[in-house]
Nucleic acid binder design. Structure first.
Length: 284
DNA sequence: ATAAGGCCCTGACCGC
DNA sequence: TGCGGTCAGGGCCTTA
């Protein structure tokens, strides 16, 4: 599911639900690998600590806990976070549950943060040194430092543009959806060598990336798949509506919103990619 | 640095 | 209904 806009939405949901300020009074881990393999170490690092702040870095959710510990959550393909009453029924897909209590105004301990993850790819890591993980990430594409000049420096000597944009150590937060959308906006084919982009194309891409991300955030994320049993919904599932504004992603055979040509699908870096063959000309 | 392929996992969906 | 193949929004690892 989640790329930058979806992770952003999840964090906003948790903040609005009152997660910041709550204290972790215990854990229930039912899939050890989610927490890095050692349940006791994980539990002892987080138990008793207060959630002091929530933030995002790339596709990571970062919860800073009291005592200098940070909890890093990566949702990968199917992870979701729910702040729920402890009496709410379990789905069977909860891999980690953080039992919570509220300090104020009077102590309640009837809620828990549930990490729901059918495919078990997600991770929840407790560490005193989050920089070890987060410092490896590239630039935040919504920061003011991400501009045409900076993007140009990332492209020098590099090969195909799409794998470059998906590389989290280069730019942090883009995934398959928003890369395809940004390339369509900039009229760049995903196989184009990054080092061959012209100045005008770099400028277009530098504008398209934040454009598609901000639109995604405004729309509360993209929710794909159909029907009731969609595993890939962000928390505000019923409100996510960016899928209605996608130009090319998973729109194979449908008309390009700009020129009407049928959208085509191809594989780039083992990921499905979607292009308008008229707007995005393939390299030689 | 780059690219391919395997792997981690489960569920939805489609054709037979 | 069952079975097998394909696909999935991510990322890590190994091999050329």
């Amino acid at each position: 599911m989640p790329e930058l806009p979806e992770v952003h939405t999840v964090i906003e949901d948790l903040r609005a639900a009152g997660l910041v300020g709550m204290r972790i009074r215990g854990t229930v881990v039912s899939w050890e690998r989610t927490v890095g393999g050692d349940v006791d170490v994980f539990s002892s690092r987080v138990t008793g600590r207060r959630i002091a702040a929530l933030s995002r870095r790339g596709k990571y959710i970062r919860a800073d806990l009291s005592g200098g510990v940070s909890l890093l959550v990566h949702l990968r393909m199917s992870g979701r976070l729910f702040l729920e009453e402890k009496t709410a029924p379990l789905s069977g897909y909860e891999r980690v549950r953080l039992l919570l209590e509220e300090d104020h105004p009077r102590v309640r301990n009837d809620r828990e943060l549930r990490f729901h993850d059918p495919r078990k790819f997600g991770r929840m890591v407790a560490t005193a040194d989050p920089g070890t993980i987060l410092d490896a990430l590239g630039i935040e594409p919504l920061s003011s430092a991400f501009d045409e000049a900076y993007l140009a420096t990332l492209l020098v000597g590099r090969r195909r543009i799409k794998p470059l944009l998906l590389d989290q150590t280069v730019i942090a937060g883009l995934g398959n959806i928003y890369v395809d959308e940004a390339l369509w906006h900039a009229r760049i084919h995903p196989l184009t060598p990054a080092s061959s982009l012209e100045r005008s194309e770099i400028a277009a891409l530098a504008a398209a990336v934040p454009l598609v991300l901000r639109r995604g955030i405004r729309n509360l994320g993209t929710s794909l798949g159909s029907g009731k049993s969609n595993f890939y919904l962000p928390n505000r599932a019923t409100q996510a509506r960016n899928q209605e504004e996608l130009a090319v992603f998973r729109r194979t055979g449908l008309p390009c919103p700009r020129c009407g040509t049928a959208i085509e699908r191809l594989i780039v870096a083992q990921r499905s990619s979607h292009v308008c063959p008229s707007c995005q000309l393939a390299p030689d």
